[in-house]
Design a protein around this nucleic acid. Structure first.
Lengths: 202, 202, 202, 202
DNA sequence: AATGAATGAGCTTTCATTCAT
DNA sequence: GATGAATGAAAGCTCATTCAT
């Protein structure tokens, strides 16, 4: 009954944990299903009871982790009580960046595998499962006071996500062309001017 | 002799061509060294006379292609005779984007594999080989009139490259969140404000 | 109780039905125990309560199906009231061939798996279970009037079964070297002369 | 040059030999490619340089062995100088049966895998490769004097092959329903009457 | 320099079978 | 009796790399 269900969840989690560690340590390429089950301590066949293949577990991992990160960032911003849209977005960005600086493994996993498509899917799923976690609606709620249409709002979000995601990767991992703290002012400056661009014309 | 040298170059080029086609058609993953040599018409062993492994030929390919694209874009901008830094960078960006829209295979190859590290290496190598092609120096020459220090100049370039590179990927390939033409005004607006940010404070 | 007994029989039959469909559709090779239980709607472990393994259920299937076919053919011949041994055997053969033409799945199942050994076992079991179904005795009863010894009778049956079984396989499935109707006259001619051979010398 | 070619032939032959032994000992089912290469003493990958898979090597084996057997039988018959068609066919049959009695491994291999389709392909290939080995033409040459049309000739051959092939299997392997020597008179009697049937009506 | 046959470790995936529930 | 999660051996097959020619 419940016992079996709990054991199954434990197996699943154990596989996800093992995969996360290995993917972030050795990369997707160099991680085999064999590696995952060995670290997880289950049999090879068991993997296939829970996931279709390596790419399936990768996707589930990326979605889960990025969703969690975003939710935390959003909540942190709400607690801080920023008023202005620019400040809200910078707060969220800052939170995410600081987390990724600490958890470089997540940075690698998410950056290399989180496409805009997956992000939208993530947010859609968040909407479906937790009614208090509809991020896209929340985002629109944030942009609404500035009279930004829904279409433009999405393009803006897209530009911001891509700019932040892409630019922090080298800065955090290789401190190239500069370290994260040096980059931040310019990055947030860019965030500010991108928002301004949409808010003005919106 | 020169003849032998020419034959060797032809082999090398033939392998690079084959690899480009295959990588852009089937992706890195699903392309084997066997596939490359078969299409190239040389023996398996020959591959290893020219490249260390699959990743080596991939890197050389990415560097070569992105270097060529950048050089073309730069020359096109010079011919157009833009005066203002913003306009110069937008012109270059526009040229690159239009090319990638046409050659989606290059987009995939470069986006997936061109990191900031490789780009800098590219430009350094350009400097070494062709003295009239030192792109980084040329870039500094472009930014100098606006009193932007070399360090800031590099950070700016970094932000621009990442923003453009990352944001055009989904727009071109999946027209998501919008197609390239729709995105351009916002993208160039962002370019403008990022440059402004550096030029003001510089 | 009877109820439990009925439920068990239903499970068994359900497994046999599923196996028949799958074996004749995809072949023995490509049918797994998993497939069988899935189609049958019972649990994996349940299979092993009723059958030792895949080969066990295959044998039971072949025996059951060929026994049924033979019984039908025999009854049909008796109703038709043929007098002469040759006509009796040809009638039976004809009935079997026509059935196999309609049910090609049975043809494949039986031809590929029904050996002379299994056939004899079949007939022996028929004898054991149903006293009104002892086919081998019935066959001897048919041959007795022609003074064919029991040994020769068996050899004759053997030759007939092998000839008919083997030759109809390609004719029915691939119409090669000719279709069944074209083959029949020659086949029945051969049956007649084989019987004659034994009857003369018997 | 020739050396490499010879080495390749030796590898191929070595694989074929190993496969023959294993297929006839343990059966197709229970023989894996791993088994074959182990016995052959080559690496796993080498197998796939010469054969597409297990079924490919099986077919090549069956065709080669049955072709060889048939050619020997035909030559033996020609040397014996039989005049009458019946005697010629019985001579060939007898030779084949005696060989299969000695080499039971071949019997299993050929019986289980030699379908009428493969046989015809075999004979067609014999025709293509060796101009003095066109068995099908030779067979027609044998039947021609008796005014048997080409179509009927083929049906006759079909019936004979199926009768002999199927009936000797149990007799040789399990002496069931009787041993080969006991069966032969009846079998040859049947051959004679089948031929008579066609010769009469032809 | 060029070849391509040979290698064999390693991959993904399947599946008959067991056994705790 | 019935279940189905778990097992892990073993399958087929690939492929980067080597090396004798």
């Amino acid at each position: 009954m419940g016992k079996i269900e709990i054991k199954k969840q434990r197996k699943r989690t154990s596989l996800l944990d093992a995969a996360l560690e290995l993917f972030t340590q050795k990369g997707m390429e160099d991680t085999s299903v064999s590696d995952i089950v060995t670290r997880s301590g289950v049999a090879k066949g068991t993997f296939y009871l829970y996931f279709r293949d390596k790419y399936d577990i990768r996707n589930k991992l990326v979605i889960y982790q990025s969703r969690r990160l975003l939710r935390e960032a959003y909540n942190d911003m709400m607690e801080a009580g920023c008023e202005l849209l620019e400040e809200q977005l910078i707060h969220i960005s800052n939170y995410v960046l600081d987390q990724l600086l600490i958890r470089k493994d997540l940075l690698v996993l998410i950056s290399k595998n989180l496409s805009w498509g997956i992000l939208k899917k993530t947010m859609a799923e968040m909407e479906a499962e937790d009614d208090d976690n509809d991020f896209i609606e929340k985002f629109h709620a944030l942009t609404a006071p500035r009279n930004i249409t829904s279409t433009k709002s999405e393009i803006m979000l897209y530009l911001l996500v891509e700019l932040i995601g892409a630019s922090c990767y080298n800065a955090i991992l290789y401190e190239n062309p500069c370290d994260l703290e040096t980059l931040k002012p310019y990055l947030f400056g860019s965030v500010r001017s991108i928002v301004a661009q949409f808010a003005e014309t919106g």
